[in-house]
């Protein structure tokens, strides 16, 4: 059987070209003979696999030409027809880790090839690899190379052969949110007792499932007297004055808008529109009340069903907006509404 084909990506330092002063070294492909840590990988592969090409790129060069260089890496890998691609390991080198993670994710997405890299868990590059590349856990310096290769090489072989990859704790990669089953040596009850003894003694222990960070909030009491309540409208549907004066982004918004509807009894095509890029905007643009029901609220206000419609409304775009930003906007909007004497909120989403 012929050997499995491996492509290896390393930076200028590990290619023994130079340190920081050579970080602008442009991307280069060396076919054949392994370079730097590639030698250790070749040894670990034995007769099973060989490195058919090494991509070398300076860390600064990559980070100054991210898109272009990533594209080049994908092209180079494609030409070599590998079974698996190895990046680094990058240990705790931030820019190197970022390059490894970014390229690994791109190769995974565009060529559908298995990819493996190695990093110190705090390396910012870990995040770029997400659930696309297996990131083997390394220590924070290159002194850990032997160990890193010992873990990465067999994992790369498994991936190249499309074999079943075990759980993160068995294979030594960083868990990025995908749960994988495996058989432990001890039954669950015994592990629970051991964990309890450690917890009692104040010794470190590792939970088998870290709690996700989604939380719940206690429901606030209901509005008692609607006829005297001040109600505010908030939307993640991107409704804003015509022309989008604050340039709220159509996706992954970095800000929210606060606009007056004082004296406005109906949102019309001439005065308002949506900034949202995640849905067909024609209906909302034609009649923005379809997203932000100002017309109905004014009617209810006139009829005395509600006390008052708050004269300001808040808007943002819920399209691909990071949870952390949405949280920040929510907290700020809440603060402003509360200090304006608002009693309750209708939040509409598209």
């Amino acid at each position: 059987m012929s050997k499995l084909r491996v492509v290896h990506y390393i930076n200028q330092f590990f290619a023994q070209i130079g340190g920081e002063e050579k970080a602008d070294y442009p991307i280069e492909l060396r076919e054949g003979t392994p370079v730097g840590p590639g030698l250790a990988f070749t040894q670990a592969f034995g007769e099973d696999a060989e490195i058919v090409g090494t991509i070398i790129c300076g860390d600064s060069y990559f980070n100054e030409n991210i898109e272009e260089t990533t594209k080049k890496v994908v092209e180079m890998v494609k030409g070599l027809k590998p079974d698996v691609v190895i990046f680094g390991p990058a240990f705790n080198a931030g820019r190197y880790g970022f390059a490894c993670g970014t390229c690994a994710a791109a190769v995974h997405d565009e060529l559908e090839l298995p990819v493996v890299t190695g990093m110190y868990p705090e390396n910012p590059g870990v995040d770029t690899a997400k659930d696309k590349a297996y990131v083997v856990v390394t220590k924070n310096s290159a002194a850990d190379m032997r160990h890193a290769v010992k873990v990465m090489a067999p994992l790369a072989l498994k991936l190249a052969r499309h074999e079943h990859v075990g759980a993160s704790c068995e294979e030594g990669y960083i868990n990025q949110g995908i749960r994988v089953n495996f058989f432990e040596k001890k039954r669950g009850s015994e592990r629970a007792v051991e964990m309890l003894l450690k917890k009692i003694a104040g010794k470190p222990y590792e939970t088998e499932y870290p709690m996700p960070s989604f939380d719940r909030v206690e429901p606030m009491p209901a509005v008692k007297d609607l006829a005297h309540a001040k109600i505010a409208l908030v939307t993640s549907g991107g409704i804003c004055p015509k022309g989008n004066p604050d340039h709220i982004e159509s996706s992954n918004a970095t800000k929210f808008g606060e606009y007056s509807i004082e004296g406005v009894t109906d949102l019309t095509e001439e005065t308002f529109e949506t900034a949202h890029g995640g849905y067909d905007p024609s209906y909302a643009n034609e009649d923005p009340d379809r997203v932000l029901p100002v017309d109905i609220m004014r009617d209810l206000e006139k009829e005395g069903v509600i006390g008052k419609l708050h004269e300001l409304f808040y808007t943002t775009v819920g399209n691909g907006t990071a949870v952390a930003s949405a949280k920040k906007y929510g907290a700020e909007i809440g603060k402003r509404l509360l200090s304006a004497g608002v009693n309750a909120v209708i939040l509409t989403s598209t």
Binding site: F214, D215, R216, V217, P219, M220, P221, A222, V223, V234, S236, T316, G318, A326, K327, K328, Y329, G330, A331, I333, G334, K335, L337, L338, V342, N343, A344, V345, I346, L347, T348, S349, T350
Partner: peptide, 29 residues
């Protein structure tokens, strides 16, 4: 966003089409 506004002390009703997502993110009404 719903949750954060509610956390600041106001009851919020979330009017939305994809209610399961609203459940997941944690709206109460």
């Amino acid at each position: 966003m719903v949750k954060e506004i509610e956390r600041s002390g106001l009851p919020v009703v979330h009017v939305c089409t994809v209610t399961p997502i609203s459940m997941t993110v944690g709206a109460n009404r």
